[in-house]
Write a protein that binds this DNA or RNA. Sequence first.
DNA 1: TTTTCTGCAAATGCTTTGCATGGGA
DNA 2: TCCCATGCAAAGCATTTGCAGAAAA
Lengths: 149, 149
Amino acid sequence: MPDPDTRLKELVAKLKERNHRLTPQRLAVLKILAAGEEHPSIERIYEQIRPDFPMTSLATVYKTVTLFKEMDEVLELGFNNGGNRYDGSKPYPHPHLICTQCGAIEDLEVDALRGIPHQVAQDTGYRIVSHRLDFFGICPKCQAGQPYT
Amino acid sequence: MPDPDTRLKELVAKLKERNHRLTPQRLAVLKILAAGEEHPSIERIYEQIRPDFPMTSLATVYKTVTLFKEMDEVLELGFNNGGNRYDGSKPYPHPHLICTQCGAIEDLEVDALRGIPHQVAQDTGYRIVSHRLDFFGICPKCQAGQPYT
DNA sequence: TTTTCTGCAAATGCTTTGCATGGGA
DNA sequence: TCCCATGCAAAGCATTTGCAGAAAA
């Protein structure tokens, strides 16, 4: 995982590059995105910000995350059943391991995937732009019957 | 791809197994799901049914697809930006190739993925239940500037 | 001072649900 | 005949949007 401080500076730099303003609310969101600790949902980011910036609105969190998503600086893990998750630490496609019980998401190394997008492009004629690989299961903690610790 | 007729019979059999009723509406939905031609959205299934069964409602299509999804006889490809897609032909996890321009979805063989779920389970302690691998790109037709043909 | 950003609340769009009626078995 | 399934319309819910006031630069 990249250094959170370095990544935060990168994100702030991207803002300025595009002549966007650095507001306290945006900085608060970026700090969480840059940390890469968990893969937070919008709601989670909102909760984490509230203690420091109680005046921040959910809409602003949405807008900030969307802004960086459009700059390809945040990876969105969309789930149709509500609560998309975001990764501002490693904004490029990479595999994830998802606990369907507690919702934990962790990054994964899958060497076997190397070169596959290129291979698919050659085999099919598609111009491959992105990909997504998720594994769903039950994490060790949840298997041990401690769903929420 | 499995034979559509065979698959249809399987799906009908699953209904009876669970003491559900075979209605004309359900049969119409199942025919489309079993065909495995495209990976239709709910709306698409609805459109395809209407000529034959104009009285069918969207809610019923939703209910039927949900029923088979819960029986693990239909694979749901969820997309957060609306319009989930369904595969009743091969209801187990398999890679897909998705054109982000025209929405075409096709099945894919990715040999490199074989054994990976098992490997991930061993490496992480997760009990892997499912997975999903999607490649996003532009299909040959759309590259040629014929987005809708 | 200018222009963008924020926060509120209303709108959106897919999906689900409640309930009275209709129709399989 | 007995329930289950259907169809309608309303409800749900995460996300987006419009707009007036606030605040970066």
